[in-house]
Design a protein around this nucleic acid. Sequence first.
DNA 1: TGTGACGCTGAGCAGAATGCGCAGTCTGTT
DNA 2: AACAGACTGCGCATTCTGCTCAGCGTCACA
Lengths: 156, 156
Amino acid sequence: MRVDELDAKIVRLFTEEQRMSVLEASRILKVARATVQARLDRMSASGVIGRWVPQPEPRAFGFPVVAFCFLTISQDLGHDAVSKALADIPEVIEVHTVSGDSDLMARIAARTNSDLQRVLDVMMATKAIVRSSSVIVLNTHFEGRTLPLLEAAARG
Amino acid sequence: MRVDELDAKIVRLFTEEQRMSVLEASRILKVARATVQARLDRMSASGVIGRWVPQPEPRAFGFPVVAFCFLTISQDLGHDAVSKALADIPEVIEVHTVSGDSDLMARIAARTNSDLQRVLDVMMATKAIVRSSSVIVLNTHFEGRTLPLLEAAARG
DNA sequence: TGTGACGCTGAGCAGAATGCGCAGTCTGTT
DNA sequence: AACAGACTGCGCATTCTGCTCAGCGTCACA
């Protein structure tokens, strides 16, 4: 979908002030309320705005450790079957099929470094994974920063 | 913060039905409206609920390509300085300092594979990065799936 | 056993926002 | 010139929110 600057301004408003109402946004942007509604509906329908939900932050409820694991899977199982098996493990936050030496990449949350070891063992116990190698996150500078990209897309 | 099952149910409700109102949630869960309000306030204040905002999805507005880049930085610059430089590039969605062979890991969005090359060139042009190696995402099975972990934490 | 802190409840009320519909206007395209 | 699409400004009934209050059960601690 093509987005314009008004779309980006609307998203920015609702991002910076989560208590924002549609009416208030229309006053700030000096457009009709129906316009803001229509833009939001359009962006939701087209998927430009995906999740607008309370995002639980693992680090805030006891899971401060994050790691990315590169997984090599059993050749007799497909990627989808493996990702379904991984989906049963709550500590697995994110799974991609990737290019390169590994087959899958998973983002893992854990309580401690040794708890991370336990989660890795649980993954290996599914018999779906042949080999894994992990990269531990030492510091997160930023994440989920998609608004600047939306604004860039709106400008050009 | 310690979360209980009611907290998890509240988050699940608002996740599954984004039009959910606090009043409606209190009716479904058969608790007082003030209780739902208090739980939401408590989870927001403690950071368990971080972002509750419209999350732009790059793939929906022209950036379907995702890659993870492992970066080696110039020794004379700190990680923070480099991440600040990267923050000026809208295609950079996420930056972590990581363990292992590389210094930083960045998540990049791009319009096409060759556009990804352009973004990598922009990153190299900052002179902050000595070397980069990329992993391209071929398929995303799921991401941002933190609710199961919250529910696991609520159970015990 | 007494006391207080804490959380949940049910209720009420004024103000605000929402969902919905409608007619008019503007703009770019065919 | 006609048309579709988007924006506007308006109104209305309904719903939700923010705020307050007193009452009640539970738990920890003195």
